[in-house]
């Protein structure tokens, strides 16, 4: 598909940064470290682990006040391919350069628009004026980013600059060139072999897991599957696979705590099963308590086994 020159802009604005007033320099602030400088990394590692338990700080507090620079101070525009139909551009143009241009052009600069000029540079070595076609996108800020709708299987390059009132374009910076992937099978077949279209359709459908019957509309089905996210890997990788939101709900469970004390060193069993006493002779047990009747005989024998004591709580749970 060829792109017509100067066609209407189709661009999706997602986010743009407007911090043009301030020029923020990257902060250099090595964090203070309590360890003496003479120590090598090994010693420090040991010392740090020694204090780790007491030094533990709340995560948020320990991790504030450091921000990435808003700009790096050089003119730059970079493209990346998102998918067959969209490329992404981010850019940064120094304020000084714009001011220079303004001063140089004077009156000519009035009503100049900052634009992205998007060139289709498929199958050629781009020299700035030989693009297959181009279109413009007006932008507002000298630092920003934009998703640009393009077409599959073509190469793209973008200039950032000013379009003057008289139509003249002044480039400030040129991007890298990117290629969008094909959105379907290549029309180029290897001269070494021939494969009938319907056979390829079967293989193609099979490759996408649609079975081997070349049903009508297989390419459409594929597109639907491919670009709806249905084919993405789940587990970690799927934004669709989250637990369903619950409606208003209530859960009630009951547990029973059985606790007591006897002479330290005594042997105690609960429902016939020996339990371990704490050193002071106390014990405590916790049970999930289902509906019904629980008979819980607790037997204790002193260490000389001279006498036996039994207490048997009976607990009934009912749920209405």
């Amino acid at each position: 598909m060829a792109v017509k020159s100067g066609r209407k802009v189709r661009a999706k604005k997602v986010k743009s940064v407007s911090r043009s007033k301030r020029s923020v320099k990257p902060k250099v602030s090595p964090r203070p470290i309590s360890t003496p400088g003479a120590f090598g990394s090994q010693e420090m590692a040991v010392e740090r682990t020694k204090f780790a338990a007491t030094q533990e700080m709340p995560r948020v507090a320990a991790r504030v006040q450091r921000e990435l620079p808003a700009e790096y101070g050089s003119d730059r525009i970079v493209l990346a391919t998102r998918d067959p139909w969209w490329i992404h551009a981010y850019w940064e143009v120094a304020e000084a350069g714009i001011d220079n241009l303004k001063n140089k052009l004077g009156q000519e600069f009035v009503d100049a628009k900052m634009i992205l000029r998007v060139y289709d540079v498929s199958y050629l070595i781009f020299n700035g004026s030989n693009a297959n076609s181009f279109f413009d996108i007006e932008i507002e800020h000298r630092i920003g980013n934009w998703y640009i709708q393009v077409s599959p299987g073509r190469s793209w390059c973008v200039d950032i600059g000013f379009r003057l009132k008289n139509g003249k374009f002044i480039m400030l910076c040129r991007s890298n060139t990117v290629l969008t992937p094909l959105a379907g099978p290549s029309w180029i077949t290897d001269e070494e072999w021939m494969i009938p279209d319907d056979m390829f359709a079967r293989l193609y459908g099979l490759g996408f897991g649609f079975g081997s019957s070349p049903a009508k509309g297989w390419q459409e089905r594929l597109k639907k599957a491919l670009f709806s996210g249905a084919l993405s890997s789940p587990g970690l990788a799927s934004p669709v696979k989250l637990p369903k939101e619950k409606k208003f709900w209530l859960v009630v469970n009951t547990e029973l705590i059985v606790y007591g004390a006897t002479e330290p060193g005594a042997k105690v069993s609960v429902q016939g099963k020996a339990i371990k006493l704490r050193p002071d002779g106390t014990f405590s047990l916790r049970f999930a308590l289902p509906d019904g009747k629980q008979v819980i005989p607790i037997e204790a024998l002193p260490s000389d086994k001279s006498e036996k004591k039994t207490i048997t709580p009976i607990v009934i749970r009912e749920t209405k």
């Binding site: 391919t81 992404h88 940064e92 980013n145 993405s232 890997s233």
Partner: peptide, 21 residues
């Protein structure tokens, strides 16, 4: 093999700001 088969999972409104840096 990510969402939608290309780079959108790693290049969308919530994370596209990281590439500049």
């Amino acid at each position: 093999w990510g969402w939608k088969g290309y780079s959108e999972m790693w290049l969308q409104g919530s994370n596209d700001w990281i590439y500049r840096h």
